[in-house]
Design a protein around this nucleic acid. Structure first.
Length: 208
DNA sequence: GTACAGATTGAG
DNA sequence: TCAATCTGTACT
């Protein structure tokens, strides 16, 4: 490697997202507002999964906000606390991983402070591997090889799962705001909230 | 204990 | 359009 190349390689910014990204001070302007902001800010960040000496990563291009206890589509609706969702009540920065439809894992990131049960679902990544796909929450977990053992993982300190800022800032005009997928059971008010965000034009976005 | 539905996916 | 597949949840 030439000296200049080495310098360039070192110059690529890879900063792990820390607690302050997931837990933000202040009050929400609208219900779930801070988590909406976090969701938008997650676009363009990278998920990194370390398996032994190997790293798998992907660029986040699609997310959804779930903001209990008012949100009928969220597991925390009504303030329910169950073995499955109790991690949502912890301080932000942890993974909420669970099985849907008896066969697909989904990964959420807990946002907000203690006893503020909110989270952001990761729905799609752009991945470098030819032929591989992470377009959809189930496929994303299959790609990253995530399962129940990651439930509750603190992604601000874990050595096998974390998020990175690599210096990209998605412009507001490139963020599409849409209705969440697969939650029609939550009733018109909640299913019509535009709490799904994706990067305009990304080929990896699910259900375009 | 039983019943039932689901933040999905891939095949037909 | 539909079945796979199983956990969480609500009820008896």
């Amino acid at each position: 490697m030439k000296r200049a190349d080495f310098k360039n390689a070192k110059a690529i910014k890879r900063k792990r997202l820390s607690r302050s990204f997931f837990v933000r001070p202040g009050k929400d302007k609208a219900y779930g507002g801070r988590s909406v902001k976090i969701a938008e800010n997650l676009l363009g960040k990278f998920v990194v999964r370390r398996i032994g000496g190997k790293k798998i990563s992907g660029r986040i291009v699609e997310v959804e906000v779930y903001a209990g206890p008012k949100d009928r589509a969220a597991h925390s609706f009504g303030g329910r606390i169950t073995p499955r969702n109790k991690v949502m009540y912890q301080r932000g920065g942890r993974a909420y991983v669970y099985l849907v439809y008896g066969m697909h894992w989904q990964m959420n990131i807990v946002t907000g402070g203690k006893n503020e049960p909110q989270c952001v679902l990761l729905r799609a990544l752009e991945v470098p591997e030819e032929g591989k796909s992470a377009s959809g929450p189930g496929k994303l977990c299959r790609y990253l090889r995530l399962d129940k053992s990651f439930h509750g993982e603190d992604i601000t300190s874990s050595d096998r799962l974390w998020l990175e800022d690599r210096g990209e800032k998605i412009d507001q005009k490139d963020i599409v705001r849409a209705k969440r997928i697969g939650i029609d059971y939550a009733g018109h008010y909640w299913s019509s909230r535009r709490w799904r965000f994706y990067v305009k034009g990304s080929p990896a976005v699910s259900r375009k």
